[in-house]
């Protein structure tokens, strides 16, 4: 058996007495897509923000490729090749696509100045692959449509050799055509051996794209199942009632 890419063991975090994540363990293998399911407030986003460095866990540990790591801020996560596409997209609306794509990792010239033209050229290349219709390179991203903004956020995550990709509701703002593109992208990244945590509300998405699904309810892990072994109704039962598949209601 290969070493898991990510193991999050016994993670706890609470905010002012509320146990947002309560002794939760999940893992991810290379080339695998693991869906995280649950109601609003179930703790999925919070759990994943611990991995991306936005929150600091109270207890528990994280191992990457079998090595125990400390992730204290988003910089640490990026250094471990963990990339995140946030539900809010986390774009600076006043800057253009290239500036957002390279935010925190700007290309610089030999004199240490930001190389705007080189960044725009790279952005044009990757956008040609992800979203060929994208043309608004010199406008602030506030002028872009929801789908275009999403493609900027996705481009940012995949451009920098991600090994572990976290996608928080990546298709929430998208139309059917763009959703299809995201699905294809996930298949392609999976084939490249990247591990993906996919947070979603949509059971249909999860059944189609994921290998395994971990379901959370009220900050606790209900269970992790192979999607091949369960039906839509089983997953629904886990989400709504917190019961294991096959268990009587």
């Amino acid at each position: 058996m290969t070493t898991p890419l990510v193991e999050m063991n016994d993670i706890c975090i609470s905010f002012g007495g509320v146990h947002a994540v309560d002794h939760v363990s999940v893992d991810l293998m290379p080339g695998e897509v693991v869906g995280l399911l649950g109601h609003n407030g179930a703790g999925k986003s919070t759990l994943i923000k611990i991995l991306s460095g936005a929150y600091q866990k109270d207890s528990g540990d994280i191992t990457i490729n079998g090595k125990k790591v400390e992730i204290n801020n988003p910089r640490d996560a990026r250094a471990l090749n963990i990339e995140t596409i946030y539900q809010t997209l986390a774009l600076a609306d006043n800057l253009d696509a290239a500036s957002n794509l390279f935010l925190g990792r700007e290309l610089v010239t030999a004199f240490g100045f930001v190389d705007e033209d080189a960044m725009e050229a790279e952005t044009r290349k990757i956008m040609a692959r992800l979203n060929p219709n994208f043309q608004k390179f010199s406008e602030p991203v506030s002028a872009l449509s929801g789908g275009q903004r999403q493609s900027v956020a996705i481009a940012r995550a995949v451009y920098f050799d991600a090994k572990i990709l976290i996608m928080d509701e990546p298709t929430a703002a998208l139309g059917p055509h763009e959703t299809q593109m995201v699905s294809e992208l996930i298949q392609q990244l999976k084939a490249e051996g990247i591990g993906i945590f996919l947070i979603s509300h949509d059971i249909h998405d999860v059944m189609e794209l994921c290998d395994r699904a971990s379901v959370m309810k009220n900050g606790k892990l209900v269970g992790t199942v192979d999607v091949k072994d369960v039906t839509d109704d089983d997953l629904l039962g886990m989400i709504i009632l917190g019961k294991q598949p096959g268990q009587a209601a």
Binding site: A54, P74, R75, T84, T88, A90, A92, L95, L103
Partner: peptide
């Protein structure tokens, strides 16, 4: 200035 949260999440 444009989005403090995004800046923080981008590792700034």
């Amino acid at each position: 200035g444009g989005n403090p949260d995004a800046a923080e999440l981008s590792g700034i």
